[in-house]
Design a protein around this nucleic acid. Structure first.
Lengths: 248, 248
DNA sequence: CAGTGGTCTAGACCACTTA
DNA sequence: AAGTGGTCTAGACCACTGT
Protein backbone atom coordinates (compact mmCIF):
# COMPACT_ATOMS: atom_id res chain seq x y z
CA UNK A 1 0.00 0.00 0.00
CA UNK A 2 2.87 2.26 0.80
CA UNK A 3 4.38 1.73 -2.62
CA UNK A 4 1.19 2.72 -4.40
CA UNK A 5 -0.03 5.63 -2.32
CA UNK A 6 2.48 8.12 -0.93
CA UNK A 7 0.76 8.30 2.45
CA UNK A 8 -2.87 8.94 1.47
CA UNK A 9 -2.32 12.03 -0.67
CA UNK A 10 -5.99 12.91 -0.89
CA UNK A 11 -6.26 13.64 2.82
CA UNK A 12 -2.83 15.19 3.02
CA UNK A 13 -3.16 17.73 0.28
CA UNK A 14 -6.59 18.87 1.43
CA UNK A 15 -5.21 20.72 4.42
CA UNK A 16 -1.52 21.36 4.75
CA UNK A 17 -0.86 19.74 8.08
CA UNK A 18 0.63 16.42 9.21
CA UNK A 19 -1.84 13.58 9.09
CA UNK A 20 -1.59 12.85 12.79
CA UNK A 21 -2.50 16.44 13.68
CA UNK A 22 -5.49 16.34 11.37
CA UNK A 23 -6.68 13.15 13.01
CA UNK A 24 -6.02 14.56 16.43
CA UNK A 25 -8.21 17.51 15.49
CA UNK A 26 -10.97 15.28 14.16
CA UNK A 27 -10.96 13.24 17.35
CA UNK A 28 -11.02 16.42 19.44
CA UNK A 29 -14.07 17.62 17.54
CA UNK A 30 -15.86 14.37 18.14
CA UNK A 31 -15.09 14.65 21.84
CA UNK A 32 -16.12 18.30 22.02
CA UNK A 33 -19.36 17.52 20.16
CA UNK A 34 -20.41 15.25 22.99
CA UNK A 35 -20.19 12.06 20.96
CA UNK A 36 -17.87 10.66 23.62
CA UNK A 37 -18.75 12.33 26.93
CA UNK A 38 -16.18 12.86 29.66
CA UNK A 39 -15.41 9.66 31.50
CA UNK A 40 -16.31 7.31 28.64
CA UNK A 41 -13.94 5.08 26.70
CA UNK A 42 -13.30 5.88 23.06
CA UNK A 43 -12.75 3.10 20.48
CA UNK A 44 -9.46 1.22 20.46
CA UNK A 45 -6.40 2.30 18.47
CA UNK A 46 -6.86 -0.49 15.98
CA UNK A 47 -10.48 0.34 15.30
CA UNK A 48 -9.82 4.07 14.97
CA UNK A 49 -6.87 3.40 12.68
CA UNK A 50 -9.17 1.44 10.43
CA UNK A 51 -11.84 4.15 10.56
CA UNK A 52 -9.47 6.84 9.41
CA UNK A 53 -7.45 4.61 7.10
CA UNK A 54 -4.11 5.37 8.68
CA UNK A 55 -1.47 3.18 10.19
CA UNK A 56 -1.72 2.39 13.86
CA UNK A 57 1.49 4.31 14.47
CA UNK A 58 0.04 7.50 13.07
CA UNK A 59 -3.10 7.07 15.11
CA UNK A 60 -1.02 6.58 18.25
CA UNK A 61 0.72 9.84 17.53
CA UNK A 62 -2.64 11.57 17.17
CA UNK A 63 -3.82 10.16 20.48
CA UNK A 64 -0.59 11.13 22.19
CA UNK A 65 -1.26 14.71 21.17
CA UNK A 66 -4.55 14.53 23.01
CA UNK A 67 -2.81 13.00 26.01
CA UNK A 68 -0.34 15.84 26.28
CA UNK A 69 -3.11 18.41 26.08
CA UNK A 70 -4.96 16.62 28.88
CA UNK A 71 -7.93 15.69 26.70
CA UNK A 72 -7.73 11.94 27.16
CA UNK A 73 -6.01 9.53 29.52
CA UNK A 74 -4.75 6.15 28.39
CA UNK A 75 -4.62 3.01 30.48
CA UNK A 76 -2.61 0.06 29.30
CA UNK A 77 -4.79 -2.99 28.93
CA UNK A 78 -8.00 -1.00 29.42
CA UNK A 79 -8.38 1.70 26.83
CA UNK A 80 -8.47 5.45 26.29
CA UNK A 81 -10.84 7.51 28.37
CA UNK A 82 -12.00 11.09 27.89
CA UNK A 83 -10.58 13.13 30.77
CA UNK A 84 -13.10 14.19 33.40
CA UNK A 85 -12.74 16.85 36.06
CA UNK A 86 -13.53 14.47 38.85
CA UNK A 87 -10.31 12.52 38.61
CA UNK A 88 -8.00 13.24 41.48
CA UNK A 89 -5.24 14.46 39.21
CA UNK A 90 -7.47 16.83 37.23
CA UNK A 91 -9.08 18.23 40.36
CA UNK A 92 -5.91 19.90 41.52
CA UNK A 93 -4.71 21.07 38.17
CA UNK A 94 -6.94 24.12 38.58
CA UNK A 95 -6.58 24.52 42.32
CA UNK A 96 -3.19 25.80 43.36
CA UNK A 97 -3.87 27.12 46.84
CA UNK A 98 -2.22 24.78 49.30
CA UNK A 99 -1.14 24.79 52.91
CA UNK A 100 2.23 26.39 53.60
CA UNK A 101 3.81 22.96 53.82
CA UNK A 102 2.51 22.11 50.35
CA UNK A 103 -0.22 19.72 51.44
CA UNK A 104 -3.62 19.77 49.84
CA UNK A 105 -6.58 21.14 51.66
CA UNK A 106 -10.09 20.43 50.44
CA UNK A 107 -12.04 23.66 50.02
CA UNK A 108 -15.60 24.04 51.30
CA UNK A 109 -17.86 26.56 49.58
CA UNK A 110 -20.61 28.84 50.87
CA UNK A 111 -22.51 30.80 48.27
CA UNK A 112 -23.18 34.40 49.30
CA UNK A 113 -25.12 35.47 46.24
CA UNK A 114 -26.09 34.24 42.83
CA UNK A 115 -27.98 36.19 40.22
CA UNK A 116 -28.43 37.11 36.59
CA UNK A 117 -27.29 40.55 35.51
CA UNK A 118 -25.92 42.61 32.68
CA UNK A 119 -22.19 42.13 32.14
CA UNK A 120 -19.84 44.96 32.99
CA UNK A 121 -17.32 45.99 30.39
CA UNK A 122 -14.57 44.06 32.16
CA UNK A 123 -16.66 40.90 32.37
CA UNK A 124 -17.80 41.06 28.74
CA UNK A 125 -14.21 41.57 27.60
CA UNK A 126 -12.95 38.62 29.63
CA UNK A 127 -15.72 36.29 28.46
CA UNK A 128 -15.51 37.58 24.89
CA UNK A 129 -19.24 38.31 24.66
CA UNK A 130 -20.93 41.43 23.33
CA UNK A 131 -21.26 44.23 25.88
CA UNK A 132 -24.72 44.32 27.40
CA UNK A 133 -25.12 40.53 27.38
CA UNK A 134 -26.36 38.79 30.46
CA UNK A 135 -24.00 36.96 32.80
CA UNK A 136 -24.61 34.82 35.82
CA UNK A 137 -22.70 36.07 38.81
CA UNK A 138 -21.82 33.82 41.71
CA UNK A 139 -20.24 35.20 44.83
CA UNK A 140 -18.91 32.73 47.36
CA UNK A 141 -16.52 32.13 50.23
CA UNK A 142 -14.33 29.06 50.31
CA UNK A 143 -13.06 27.70 53.60
CA UNK A 144 -9.71 26.00 53.95
CA UNK A 145 -8.99 24.02 57.08
CA UNK A 146 -12.05 25.40 58.80
CA UNK A 147 -11.37 29.07 58.24
CA UNK A 148 -12.57 31.37 55.44
CA UNK A 149 -9.69 31.75 52.99
CA UNK A 150 -10.95 32.67 49.53
CA UNK A 151 -13.53 35.24 48.51
CA UNK A 152 -14.52 34.57 44.93
CA UNK A 153 -16.56 36.17 42.16
CA UNK A 154 -17.47 33.87 39.26
CA UNK A 155 -18.94 35.10 35.98
CA UNK A 156 -20.33 32.88 33.23
CA UNK A 157 -22.21 33.58 30.02
CA UNK A 158 -25.92 33.32 30.83
CA UNK A 159 -26.72 32.22 27.28
CA UNK A 160 -24.40 29.25 27.55
CA UNK A 161 -25.34 28.25 31.07
CA UNK A 162 -29.02 29.05 30.94
CA UNK A 163 -30.87 27.95 34.03
CA UNK A 164 -27.89 27.89 36.32
CA UNK A 165 -29.00 31.01 38.14
CA UNK A 166 -32.22 29.23 39.08
CA UNK A 167 -30.83 25.82 39.97
CA UNK A 168 -32.27 24.92 43.33
CA UNK A 169 -29.35 22.69 44.25
CA UNK A 170 -26.52 23.77 46.40
CA UNK A 171 -23.60 24.40 44.08
CA UNK A 172 -20.88 21.77 44.24
CA UNK A 173 -17.45 22.68 45.40
CA UNK A 174 -15.89 22.37 42.01
CA UNK A 175 -17.85 24.29 39.46
CA UNK A 176 -15.85 22.77 36.61
CA UNK A 177 -17.42 19.39 37.30
CA UNK A 178 -20.84 21.00 37.09
CA UNK A 179 -20.01 22.71 33.79
CA UNK A 180 -18.83 19.41 32.42
CA UNK A 181 -21.64 17.21 33.65
CA UNK A 182 -24.64 19.47 33.17
CA UNK A 183 -23.53 21.69 30.31
CA UNK A 184 -21.16 19.41 28.35
CA UNK A 185 -18.54 22.09 28.68
CA UNK A 186 -15.02 21.06 29.68
CA UNK A 187 -12.49 23.55 30.92
CA UNK A 188 -9.29 22.64 29.11
CA UNK A 189 -6.94 25.41 30.16
CA UNK A 190 -6.86 28.65 32.07
CA UNK A 191 -4.84 31.80 32.23
CA UNK A 192 -4.19 33.64 35.47
CA UNK A 193 -2.98 37.06 36.46
CA UNK A 194 -1.99 37.60 40.08
CA UNK A 195 -1.70 40.80 42.05
CA UNK A 196 -1.56 41.83 45.68
CA UNK A 197 -4.30 43.98 47.22
CA UNK A 198 -5.09 45.45 50.61
CA UNK A 199 -8.15 44.04 52.33
CA UNK A 200 -11.30 46.15 52.05
CA UNK A 201 -14.64 45.88 53.87
CA UNK A 202 -15.73 42.72 52.01
CA UNK A 203 -12.57 40.87 52.94
CA UNK A 204 -12.67 42.08 56.53
CA UNK A 205 -16.21 40.80 56.82
CA UNK A 206 -15.97 37.49 54.96
CA UNK A 207 -12.33 36.48 55.31
CA UNK A 208 -11.84 37.84 58.82
CA UNK A 209 -8.92 39.84 57.47
CA UNK A 210 -7.47 42.88 59.18
CA UNK A 211 -8.30 46.17 57.52
CA UNK A 212 -5.56 46.71 54.89
CA UNK A 213 -4.03 43.24 55.27
CA UNK A 214 -2.20 42.10 52.15
CA UNK A 215 -4.12 39.50 50.12
CA UNK A 216 -3.64 37.76 46.78
CA UNK A 217 -6.02 38.61 43.98
CA UNK A 218 -6.19 36.14 41.13
CA UNK A 219 -7.90 36.95 37.85
CA UNK A 220 -8.60 33.81 35.86
CA UNK A 221 -10.07 33.21 32.44
CA UNK A 222 -10.89 29.54 31.81
CA UNK A 223 -11.25 28.23 28.27
CA UNK A 224 -12.62 25.10 26.63
CA UNK A 225 -11.07 22.89 23.95
CA UNK A 226 -11.97 25.37 21.23
CA UNK A 227 -10.26 28.09 23.23
CA UNK A 228 -13.57 29.79 23.84
CA UNK A 229 -13.80 31.61 27.18
CA UNK A 230 -16.02 29.71 29.58
CA UNK A 231 -15.62 31.46 32.89
CA UNK A 232 -14.14 34.61 34.35
CA UNK A 233 -13.20 34.39 37.99
CA UNK A 234 -11.71 36.84 40.46
CA UNK A 235 -10.46 35.27 43.68
CA UNK A 236 -9.11 37.06 46.72
CA UNK A 237 -6.98 34.83 48.89
CA UNK A 238 -5.91 35.12 52.51
CA UNK A 239 -2.30 33.88 52.65
CA UNK A 240 -1.69 33.68 56.39
CA UNK A 241 -1.61 29.91 56.36
CA UNK A 242 -1.82 29.07 52.66
CA UNK A 243 0.06 29.95 49.50
CA UNK A 244 -0.27 29.78 45.75
CA UNK A 245 1.95 27.01 44.38
CA UNK A 246 3.39 26.89 40.92
CA UNK A 247 5.77 24.59 39.09
CA UNK A 248 7.81 26.13 36.31
CA UNK B 1 17.91 -8.88 13.62
CA UNK B 2 14.51 -8.53 15.18
CA UNK B 3 13.80 -12.23 14.75
CA UNK B 4 16.97 -13.22 16.58
CA UNK B 5 17.10 -10.71 19.40
CA UNK B 6 13.90 -9.71 21.17
CA UNK B 7 14.83 -6.02 21.22
CA UNK B 8 18.36 -6.11 22.67
CA UNK B 9 17.60 -8.11 25.82
CA UNK B 10 21.02 -7.45 27.35
CA UNK B 11 20.37 -3.74 27.73
CA UNK B 12 16.74 -4.19 28.54
CA UNK B 13 17.06 -6.65 31.37
CA UNK B 14 19.87 -4.71 33.05
CA UNK B 15 17.53 -2.00 34.29
CA UNK B 16 13.82 -2.48 34.13
CA UNK B 17 12.86 0.52 32.05
CA UNK B 18 11.96 1.10 28.42
CA UNK B 19 14.98 1.37 26.17
CA UNK B 20 14.16 4.89 25.04
CA UNK B 21 14.01 6.13 28.62
CA UNK B 22 17.37 4.56 29.38
CA UNK B 23 18.87 6.25 26.36
CA UNK B 24 17.22 9.51 27.25
CA UNK B 25 18.83 9.22 30.67
CA UNK B 26 22.25 8.42 29.22
CA UNK B 27 22.04 11.42 26.91
CA UNK B 28 20.96 13.63 29.79
CA UNK B 29 23.98 12.53 31.79
CA UNK B 30 26.31 13.34 28.93
CA UNK B 31 24.74 16.77 28.67
CA UNK B 32 24.87 17.37 32.41
CA UNK B 33 28.50 16.25 32.49
CA UNK B 34 29.43 19.11 30.21
CA UNK B 35 30.35 16.91 27.27
CA UNK B 36 27.90 18.91 25.16
CA UNK B 37 27.72 22.41 26.64
CA UNK B 38 24.59 24.53 26.34
CA UNK B 39 24.20 25.98 22.88
CA UNK B 40 26.17 23.27 21.06
CA UNK B 41 24.80 20.73 18.62
CA UNK B 42 24.77 17.08 19.63
CA UNK B 43 25.37 14.31 17.08
CA UNK B 44 22.67 13.48 14.57
CA UNK B 45 19.95 10.92 15.19
CA UNK B 46 21.51 8.44 12.82
CA UNK B 47 24.90 8.62 14.45
CA UNK B 48 23.50 8.36 17.98
CA UNK B 49 21.31 5.44 16.95
CA UNK B 50 24.41 3.65 15.76
CA UNK B 51 26.32 4.51 18.93
CA UNK B 52 23.66 3.01 21.17
CA UNK B 53 22.72 0.20 18.81
CA UNK B 54 19.05 1.04 18.70
CA UNK B 55 16.73 1.80 15.86
CA UNK B 56 16.40 5.38 14.77
CA UNK B 57 12.78 5.37 15.91
CA UNK B 58 13.74 4.50 19.46
CA UNK B 59 16.40 7.17 19.48
CA UNK B 60 13.89 9.73 18.27
CA UNK B 61 11.64 8.82 21.14
CA UNK B 62 14.52 9.32 23.56
CA UNK B 63 15.29 12.73 22.10
CA UNK B 64 11.64 13.73 22.21
CA UNK B 65 11.70 13.07 25.92
CA UNK B 66 14.50 15.59 26.25
CA UNK B 67 12.58 18.02 24.10
CA UNK B 68 9.53 17.90 26.31
CA UNK B 69 11.64 18.46 29.42
CA UNK B 70 13.23 21.49 27.77
CA UNK B 71 16.71 19.99 27.70
CA UNK B 72 17.26 20.18 23.95
CA UNK B 73 15.67 21.96 21.03
CA UNK B 74 15.45 20.40 17.57
CA UNK B 75 15.61 22.24 14.29
CA UNK B 76 14.61 20.48 11.11
CA UNK B 77 17.42 20.47 8.65
CA UNK B 78 19.96 21.75 11.18
CA UNK B 79 20.20 19.46 14.15
CA UNK B 80 19.58 19.14 17.87
CA UNK B 81 20.96 21.81 20.16
CA UNK B 82 21.37 21.78 23.94
CA UNK B 83 18.96 24.37 25.33
CA UNK B 84 20.58 27.56 26.61
CA UNK B 85 19.10 30.21 28.85
CA UNK B 86 19.81 32.96 26.37
CA UNK B 87 17.24 31.85 23.84
CA UNK B 88 14.29 34.17 23.74
CA UNK B 89 11.86 31.42 24.62
CA UNK B 90 13.84 30.14 27.58
CA UNK B 91 14.41 33.62 28.96
CA UNK B 92 10.78 34.15 29.82
CA UNK B 93 10.07 30.70 31.08
CA UNK B 94 11.43 31.78 34.46
CA UNK B 95 10.23 35.34 34.36
CA UNK B 96 6.50 35.67 34.78
CA UNK B 97 6.14 39.30 35.82
CA UNK B 98 4.60 41.18 32.92
CA UNK B 99 2.81 44.44 32.32
CA UNK B 100 -0.89 44.46 33.10
CA UNK B 101 -1.68 44.10 29.43
CA UNK B 102 0.46 40.97 29.24
CA UNK B 103 3.38 42.49 27.37
CA UNK B 104 6.94 41.72 28.28
CA UNK B 105 9.08 44.24 30.03
CA UNK B 106 12.83 43.79 30.20
CA UNK B 107 14.04 44.04 33.78
CA UNK B 108 17.09 46.09 34.74
CA UNK B 109 19.04 45.09 37.85
CA UNK B 110 20.87 47.11 40.47
CA UNK B 111 22.79 45.12 43.07
CA UNK B 112 22.39 46.53 46.58
CA UNK B 113 24.63 44.05 48.36
CA UNK B 114 26.55 40.87 47.72
CA UNK B 115 28.44 38.89 50.32
CA UNK B 116 29.43 35.52 51.68
CA UNK B 117 27.78 34.44 54.91
CA UNK B 118 26.58 31.49 56.94
CA UNK B 119 23.27 30.08 55.79
CA UNK B 120 20.24 30.57 57.97
CA UNK B 121 18.14 27.53 58.75
CA UNK B 122 15.57 28.51 56.11
CA UNK B 123 18.22 28.99 53.44
CA UNK B 124 20.02 25.74 54.22
CA UNK B 125 16.73 23.85 54.10
CA UNK B 126 15.77 25.36 50.76
CA UNK B 127 19.17 24.69 49.20
CA UNK B 128 19.41 21.26 50.79
CA UNK B 129 22.85 21.92 52.30
CA UNK B 130 24.05 21.20 55.82
CA UNK B 131 23.21 23.92 58.34
CA UNK B 132 26.17 26.18 58.95
CA UNK B 133 27.41 26.02 55.35
CA UNK B 134 28.32 29.19 53.56
CA UNK B 135 26.02 30.81 51.05
CA UNK B 136 26.45 33.75 48.75
CA UNK B 137 23.75 36.30 49.26
CA UNK B 138 22.79 38.79 46.57
CA UNK B 139 20.36 41.57 47.24
CA UNK B 140 19.10 43.55 44.29
CA UNK B 141 16.38 45.78 42.91
CA UNK B 142 14.94 45.17 39.47
CA UNK B 143 13.38 47.99 37.52
CA UNK B 144 10.51 47.46 35.14
CA UNK B 145 9.62 50.24 32.72
CA UNK B 146 11.87 52.68 34.49
CA UNK B 147 10.51 52.22 38.00
CA UNK B 148 11.70 49.89 40.78
CA UNK B 149 9.38 46.91 40.82
CA UNK B 150 11.09 43.88 42.36
CA UNK B 151 13.18 43.62 45.52
CA UNK B 152 15.01 40.33 45.45
CA UNK B 153 17.17 38.19 47.73
CA UNK B 154 19.14 35.44 46.01
CA UNK B 155 20.94 32.64 47.85
CA UNK B 156 23.33 30.14 46.29
CA UNK B 157 25.63 27.49 47.71
CA UNK B 158 29.06 29.09 48.12
CA UNK B 159 30.79 25.75 47.58
CA UNK B 160 29.20 25.30 44.22
CA UNK B 161 29.59 28.88 43.05
CA UNK B 162 32.95 29.63 44.59
CA UNK B 163 34.29 32.98 43.57
CA UNK B 164 31.02 34.52 42.64
CA UNK B 165 30.98 36.75 45.69
CA UNK B 166 34.25 38.29 44.53
CA UNK B 167 33.51 38.63 40.85
CA UNK B 168 34.38 42.15 39.88
CA UNK B 169 31.93 42.24 37.01
CA UNK B 170 28.55 43.75 37.24
CA UNK B 171 26.09 40.90 37.52
CA UNK B 172 24.07 40.26 34.40
CA UNK B 173 20.36 40.68 34.45
CA UNK B 174 19.63 37.01 34.20
CA UNK B 175 21.61 35.09 36.75
CA UNK B 176 20.62 31.78 35.18
CA UNK B 177 22.72 32.60 32.14
CA UNK B 178 25.67 33.26 34.42
CA UNK B 179 25.18 29.97 36.27
CA UNK B 180 25.08 28.18 32.97
CA UNK B 181 28.00 29.86 31.26
CA UNK B 182 30.46 30.21 34.12
CA UNK B 183 29.49 27.31 36.36
CA UNK B 184 28.13 24.76 33.87
CA UNK B 185 24.96 24.64 35.92
CA UNK B 186 21.65 24.75 34.10
CA UNK B 187 18.43 25.55 35.87
CA UNK B 188 15.95 23.03 34.54
CA UNK B 189 12.89 23.68 36.63
CA UNK B 190 11.69 25.72 39.56
CA UNK B 191 9.01 25.61 42.19
CA UNK B 192 7.32 28.73 43.50
CA UNK B 193 5.20 29.64 46.47
CA UNK B 194 3.40 32.97 46.38
CA UNK B 195 2.00 35.02 49.22
CA UNK B 196 0.87 38.59 49.79
CA UNK B 197 2.69 40.84 52.26
CA UNK B 198 2.41 44.41 53.47
CA UNK B 199 5.29 46.69 52.54
CA UNK B 200 7.88 47.25 55.26
CA UNK B 201 10.75 49.76 55.49
CA UNK B 202 12.87 48.00 52.84
CA UNK B 203 10.09 48.08 50.29
CA UNK B 204 9.17 51.66 51.09
CA UNK B 205 12.77 52.66 50.54
CA UNK B 206 13.68 50.59 47.49
CA UNK B 207 10.37 50.04 45.73
CA UNK B 208 8.87 53.42 46.55
CA UNK B 209 5.91 51.58 48.03
CA UNK B 210 3.50 53.12 50.52
CA UNK B 211 3.88 51.89 54.07
CA UNK B 212 1.70 48.77 54.31
CA UNK B 213 0.95 48.57 50.60
CA UNK B 214 0.11 45.05 49.45
CA UNK B 215 2.94 43.35 47.55
CA UNK B 216 3.55 39.89 46.14
CA UNK B 217 6.20 37.75 47.76
CA UNK B 218 7.50 34.85 45.70
CA UNK B 219 9.62 32.10 47.21
CA UNK B 220 11.40 30.13 44.51
CA UNK B 221 13.64 27.09 44.59
CA UNK B 222 15.38 26.43 41.28
CA UNK B 223 16.75 22.99 40.45
CA UNK B 224 19.08 21.50 37.86
CA UNK B 225 18.65 18.40 35.69
CA UNK B 226 19.53 16.13 38.59
CA UNK B 227 16.87 17.84 40.68
CA UNK B 228 19.53 19.30 42.93
CA UNK B 229 18.64 22.70 44.38
CA UNK B 230 20.68 25.43 42.72
CA UNK B 231 19.24 28.66 43.98
CA UNK B 232 16.82 29.96 46.59
CA UNK B 233 15.22 33.27 45.77
CA UNK B 234 12.75 35.49 47.59
CA UNK B 235 11.24 38.23 45.45
CA UNK B 236 8.94 41.01 46.57
CA UNK B 237 6.95 42.49 43.73
CA UNK B 238 5.13 45.79 43.37
CA UNK B 239 1.94 45.03 41.42
CA UNK B 240 0.63 48.51 40.70
CA UNK B 241 1.40 48.23 37.00
CA UNK B 242 2.56 44.63 36.64
CA UNK B 243 1.24 41.19 37.48
CA UNK B 244 2.35 37.60 37.79
CA UNK B 245 1.14 35.59 34.79
CA UNK B 246 0.50 31.89 34.76
CA UNK B 247 -0.87 29.44 32.23
CA UNK B 248 -2.60 26.36 33.64
C1' DC C 1 23.71 18.66 -3.40
C1' DA C 2 24.28 16.14 1.10
C1' DG C 3 22.78 16.10 5.71
C1' DT C 4 19.51 17.05 9.14
C1' DG C 5 15.09 16.24 11.53
C1' DG C 6 9.74 15.07 10.54
C1' DT C 7 6.16 11.92 8.87
C1' DC C 8 4.14 7.57 7.76
C1' DT C 9 3.90 2.77 7.36
C1' DA C 10 3.77 -2.31 8.64
C1' DG C 11 4.51 -5.71 11.61
C1' DA C 12 6.47 -8.20 15.77
C1' DC C 13 6.38 -8.60 20.43
C1' DC C 14 5.58 -7.13 25.44
C1' DA C 15 2.70 -5.69 29.56
C1' DC C 16 -1.47 -5.07 31.54
C1' DT C 17 -6.62 -5.83 32.28
C1' DT C 18 -10.75 -8.34 32.16
C1' DA C 19 -13.57 -12.18 31.79
C1' DA D 1 -7.59 -16.25 26.23
C1' DA D 2 -8.79 -12.11 24.07
C1' DG D 3 -8.33 -7.30 23.89
C1' DT D 4 -6.11 -3.13 25.15
C1' DG D 5 -2.24 0.12 25.03
C1' DG D 6 3.30 0.29 25.09
C1' DT D 7 7.76 -0.70 22.90
C1' DC D 8 10.89 -1.58 19.19
C1' DT D 9 12.25 -2.17 14.61
C1' DA D 10 13.23 -1.17 9.54
C1' DG D 11 12.67 1.39 5.81
C1' DA D 12 10.53 4.87 2.56
C1' DC D 13 9.74 9.39 1.71
C1' DC D 14 9.13 14.53 2.81
C1' DA D 15 10.73 19.24 4.39
C1' DC D 16 14.13 22.16 5.69
C1' DT D 17 19.08 23.90 6.02
C1' DG D 18 23.47 24.59 4.64
C1' DT D 19 27.34 24.49 1.02
Amino acid sequence: MNSELPASPDVKSAIFQPLYLQISQLLLERIASGEWPAGTYIPSEASLAETYNVSIGTLRKALNELVSSNVVIRYQGKGTVVAAHDSDSALFRFFNILRDNGERSLPLSRVLARHLRTASEEEALALDIVPGSKVIHIWRVRDLDGAPAILEHVYIDAARFSGMDREPDILPNTLYQLYQQKYACTVANAHEQIKAVNAGPDEVLHLEAEEGEALLRIYRIARDFQDKAVEYRVSTVMTRHHAYFNQL
